[in-house]
């Protein structure tokens, strides 16, 4: 079953008088449970594609359908709500809320979903356990290492029970050990809980773990390899 359907997607930036095609006619479908890496040189359109899939930006033309909903037709407020219920985000710079503890960061998103307190607490603790942060629940982000922060970010992304997780260069700021650790956790979650992960990355270690690798160049998909 396809989670994401992308048809003839274009994103054009009007840089003064020159039109820059960030994405130029991308067609793509992603099935539930995929572990996909989007690769390509800088400026190839990876981040743009991820932003569009995440409903953070509007395409110039084309269609993005997530779970049957054409997100290009949603208003700004509907999009925020759609993201809350369907998409998990992991950012390169972790981007946790600095004034909240690890537990509160994970719980925050469920709070936005108005989930009951009991459910929030149980799920938060099980997610933190899943990413190996048992015992660090009450630490604020500045007391955690980069790797630990990114694991909290993964737990946060999963807290809302999303249809898929978008991870933009999730390992870019991590050392080898932390990268390996994070990838193992994500791979496990993907295998055991059938969570769909889509990465944009330059990191060969991520590419090696991915079961599907989509290569972009000049805003076009030049290869789409399933391992």
């Amino acid at each position: 079953m396809n989670v994401i359907e992308v048809n003839a997607l274009e994103k054009i930036y009007n840089d003064s008088e020159v039109k820059v095609y960030a994405l130029n006619g991308v067609d793509l479908s992603i099935e539930a449970g995929e572990f996909t890496a989007i690769v390509g040189p800088s400026g190839s359109g990876k981040t743009t594609l991820l932003n569009l899939l995440g409903g953070l930006d509007q395409p110039t033309s084309g269609q993005i359908s997530i779970g049957g909903t054409d997100i290009s037709k949603l208003s700004s407020s509907q999009l925020i709500d759609f993201r809350l219920r369907n998409i998990g985000f992991v950012f390169q710079a972790y981007n946790l809320i600095p004034v909240l503890t690890a537990k509160e960061n994970v719980e925050f998103i469920m709070h936005l979903q108005n989930r009951p307190k009991e459910e929030r607490l149980t799920r938060t603790m099980s997610l933190l356990k899943a990413v190996g942060l048992e015992g660090r629940e009450n630490s604020r982000p500045n007391k955690l290492s980069g790797g630990q922060q990114q694991r909290v970010a993964v737990a946060r992304a999963l807290a809302s029970k999303p249809k898929f997780v978008l991870a933009d260069e999730p390992t870019a700021n991590l050392d080898s050990k932390a990268t390996e650790n994070l990838l193992e956790i994500m791979e496990e979650l993907n295998r055991n809980e059938n969570i769909t992960f889509i990465f944009s990355t330059h990191d060969q270690r991520v590419v090696n773990k991915a079961r599907r690798v989509i290569t972009l160049e000049d805003g076009k998909i030049i290869s789409d390899v399933r391992k």
Binding site: S77, I80, D81, L84, L112, S160
Partner: peptide, 16 residues
């Protein structure tokens, strides 16, 4: 500003 961007991205309504 960046933090606000993150909060809205993960699903916090702007009015909240």
């Amino acid at each position: 500003r960046r933090e606000f961007g993150v909060m809205i991205s993960i699903g916090m309504q702007k009015r909240k």
